[in-house]
Design a protein around this nucleic acid. Structure first.
Lengths: 204, 204
DNA sequence: TGTACATCAGTGAACGCGCGTTCACTGATGTAC
DNA sequence: TGTACATCAGTGAACGCGCGTTCACTGATGTAC
């Protein structure tokens, strides 16, 4: 009351952004299972009823997180894609995104946690998908069949997503790698070889 | 009291197994976030305090689930591996395991949910890992460097695990495939090609 | 075959807790005049 | 420049709920003799 600097102002000013930041901090610390609106509000230093004004409810908050995540992912992957870098580089940028934004990553691929038909979210998700598809198509060459493009997209997405997931859950600690990007690079390279024929092995 | 068949017997007989089954049903229905001991007990038709005798607490229950899962995974992947089938077949058996046991799969790769140093669990997990490593080593040939084996293992594990995860979270529905195994097969095949050189693209 | 007794397996009431959501409210801001 | 008023943003108390865990208990089983 006496010193205006000492009291917290009634209006936060940028609470929506602050709540999102608190949510992401919570998510990367404890994962989506343990996330609670009250803890988020506590972290942001506001009343536990405050998030309601900005996100409606818990689903709304996580929908905003997911939409934000897809926006960041599309941005991150389109950088190498637009520079016509090899497909591997696009994959590495995907891995880099996951490592840099574990909170987003933990929510984005759990559609049960948010409103999948949110327009903003759907737009960014489709944008991210089309960046990846374009990179795969470019890798295959323009004469590739659509079936091959789908198979290639799924293959590229699987290895990239799988690596990111396994690394982040601590399942690759046996490799004892200092830099996950280096490890991903060597793993991506390892798969670009034709299968070895073995005596007695039946072919697919 | 009058009719012995009409009353539930005080002793269940095989409650440990029944609780595990109820847990897996719950897990594949709602995922690990929503799992509650009380709901598991309800599903098994026993008092909510009954699980205590068999698993101690919630962590104990999920540790048993994870150990069971690694046992099943090691069994499933060692079948094609021991028959000297191509690496792809080992990957497909991994995918088949995930699809057949979504409850186990949802827990196994979330080490925060269970006791990672449980001896039984550690044994089965290591067994599953060594099956996969042996399959990769066989695929590479005996003259391969250890580094290459690690890279190959991570690559194979990533694409396999990534595919299973993406499929099960509904992220591959765009491919509109009736059989995930067929889709996985085509994706695995797609990655066994050398990268295409493109004009203006810098190499890795 | 019977009996005593230890052990095991499951019960049901009770505990304290944190949660999401609702609600009437109040402080602050912006706009019309 | 001032004033009235609508709107916005955040508060804090309260609600009902399901949860994990504890506890003294009881029914059932198995074993020793």
């Amino acid at each position: 009351v006496t010193s205006p600097r000492a009291v917290r102002p009634y209006h936060h000013g940028d609470l929506r952004r602050a709540l999102l930041a608190a949510t992401l901090a919570e998510l990367s610390a404890s994962g989506p299972s343990r996330l609670s609106l009250r803890e988020v509000a506590r972290r942001a230093g506001v009343s536990h009823a405050a998030p309601r004004h900005h996100f409606g409810d818990k689903l709304g908050l996580l929908t905003a997180v997911a939409a934000d995540g897809y926006r960041l992912l599309a941005d991150a992957t389109s950088r190498p894609a637009e520079a016509s870098a090899p497909l591997e580089e696009v994959g590495l940028s995907y891995v880099a995104f996951a490592l840099a934004h574990p909170g987003h990553f933990a929510v984005m691929f759990r559609p049960d946690l948010y409103n999948v038909s949110d327009p903003d979210l759907a737009r960014e998700r489709d944008r991210a998908a089309s960046v990846l598809l374009a990179a795969v198509t470019a890798d295959l060459g323009d004469d590739a069949a659509p079936d091959a493009a789908v198979a290639g997209l799924i293959a590229a997405w699987s290895i990239t997503h799988g690596f990111a997931t396994l690394w982040m859950t601590g399942n690759l600690s046996f490799a004892d790698a200092a830099d996950p990007q280096d490890l991903a690079r060597s793993a991506f390279a390892a798969l670009r070889r034709p299968p070895r024929r073995r005596a007695g092995a039946r072919e697919l």
